[in-house]
Design a protein around this nucleic acid. Structure first.
Lengths: 202, 202
DNA sequence: GTCTATACTCTGATAGAC
DNA sequence: GTCTATCAGAGTATAGAC
């Protein structure tokens, strides 16, 4: 027995995630998941009631790996300069560690937009505190005049886009997997610089 | 007969697009597409050989609506300041006019990354000219020191993200469809400002 | 070109032995 | 808990009339 003793349930969840990522819920086959997990198809139904339930379990597990960190950043009370750094680092680090998440989320966002948004709100995710902080910073003259919601979206886009569109960007820029990995890490400082420059009062 | 006389083929393509967008290729049902088009299921096979071919046709049609504009911007020889404005306006305008494209592309990017990247390269899409221009601008001291590829990705992310993640962003920011539409238009000036500020030499 | 009816495959789900 | 065997339904694709 190695240090990573896996019970069947975890085995299934991992296998299911792999398959769901590439094929989506509709495209995935229960047989394929069973093969990936090295177990029998019937066991999938034994542990989870069926395909939909299995997918939901996988999705919730994925959500639980990034929601806490995200929520924390949005609500944390700290100086704006530092917050930008924390924001960028958190998002990029979480996604470097779990590269499958963005495509997974986006994929299911089409099929059931309301569900995911509901999950986020239900979890207590709320951009308000950060939006208010941005507006305060503007009022104080610390950063230039701008619309807070646009700034939030800018920040998110800068962090998330290279993960969401990973294959295209990687392909267009002709990078190997290792090179792209480096590129993503590099972005942490690059984004912070980009953003800080863009908000300084002129 | 109205001004928009539709032959069956166009009808099918439109219906198929609608269904494929929401369900993906695997999730879509030929019956549903037939219903949406108000025709019989067998006709789908008559005009296109089958589901895969139909999907490919829809995808290629989508690609042909945005590739020309994108390619033009990337290659156009013009002053950098103006080019940023053109870049942002083109991307945003194309996506406002065809809001279905991003989710559609991303969706299929998972299933077949190589195929889409191949399509782009095959079409002649090449970021090199613009990357070179960025490096020249830096060398000339017109803009601050930065990595060209990061700048490209930043620009793309700022433009594309709010379309890709439309449902989440809209939901989190509590915007109605009309409000979000306005928001997207607003972004054109907002992004340009953001970017220009961020690249000025300090 | 368009329809109805149907063949056939795939796959999610269950029954039941071990 | 895990397996084999099987069912039932869904869904793609085709045959053939009009």
């Amino acid at each position: 027995m190695s240090a990573t003793v896996k019970n069947t349930e975890k085995l299934i969840l991992e296998a299911a995630r792999k398959v769901f990522i590439h094929k989506g819920c509709a495209g995935a086959r229960m047989q394929e998941i069973a093969d990936e997990a090295g177990i029998n198809k019937a066991l999938l139904h034994y542990y989870f009631r069926g395909k939909d339930k299995l997918f939901e379990a996988v999705f919730l597990q994925a959500a639980s790996t990034f929601l806490p960190a995200i929520k924390d950043v949005l609500e944390r009370d700290m100086p704006f300069n530092q917050k930008i750094v924390l924001f960028v680092n958190t998002y990029v680090d979480v996604l470097v560690a779990n590269p499958y998440i963005p495509a997974f989320v986006i994929q299911e966002l089409n099929n059931n937009p309301a569900k995911f948004v509901g999950l986020l709100k239900n979890y207590g995710l709320n951009p308000r505190p950060m939006l208010l902080q941005i507006e305060q910073e503007i009022a104080l003259g610390h950063i230039r005049e701008m619309k807070a919601d646009h700034f939030m979206v800018n920040l998110l886009g800068l962090c998330l886009f290279p993960f969401i569109a990973r294959p295209v960007v990687k392909g267009i820029l002709n990078m190997s997997e290792e090179k792209y990995q480096e590129f993503l890490i590099e972005r942490k400082t690059e984004i912070v610089q980009f953003v800080k420059n863009s908000i300084t009062v002129s």
